[in-house]
Simulated assay, not measured.
Amino acid sequence: MHRVVVLALDGVYPFELGIPKRIFDSAGSRYEVLTCSADGGPVRTCADFTITVEHGPEALRTADTVVIPPYDLALTTPSLPRSVLEALALIRPGTRIVSICTGAFVLAAAGLLDGRRATTHWQLADHFRALFPRVTLDPDVLFVDDGDILTSAGAASGVDVCLHIVRADHGSAAANRVARLCVVPPWRDGGQAQYIEAPVPDPTTTGTAPTRHWALENLHLPLTLDTLAEHARMSRRTFARRFGSEVGMSPGRWLIAQRVERARQLLESSELSVDHIAGRVGFATGTSLRQHFHSSLGVAPLAYRRTFRMSTDDRAYA
Score class of each variant (00 low, 15 high):
D25F: 08
A175M: 14
A198F: 07
Y304D: 09
S273C: 10
G41L: 12
E54T: 06
S270G: 08
M234Y: 12
R242N: 09
R305M: 06
R212M: 15
F293E: 00
D313A: 15
H2P: 00
L90C: 03
A263V: 02
K21W: 14
A168V: 07
R241M: 09
E268F: 03
D138N: 14
G171Y: 11
V247N: 00
A118L: 09
E197A: 15
V247A: 08
Y71L: 13
K21N: 11
V43I: 09
T312D: 14
G244R: 14
V98S: 01
G56S: 09
K21M: 15
Q194F: 01
R306Y: 05
D126T: 15
S172N: 10
L150E: 00
A38L: 07
V53S: 05
H164C: 05
A263Q: 06
A59W: 00
S288V: 13
R290E: 13
L73D: 13
V159G: 00
L112T: 05
H292V: 02
P203A: 10
G154Y: 00
D160M: 05
D160C: 02
L267Y: 00
A173R: 10
T77W: 11
T238I: 08
A284C: 06
T50D: 12
R92D: 04
R129G: 07
A59I: 04
Y31V: 03
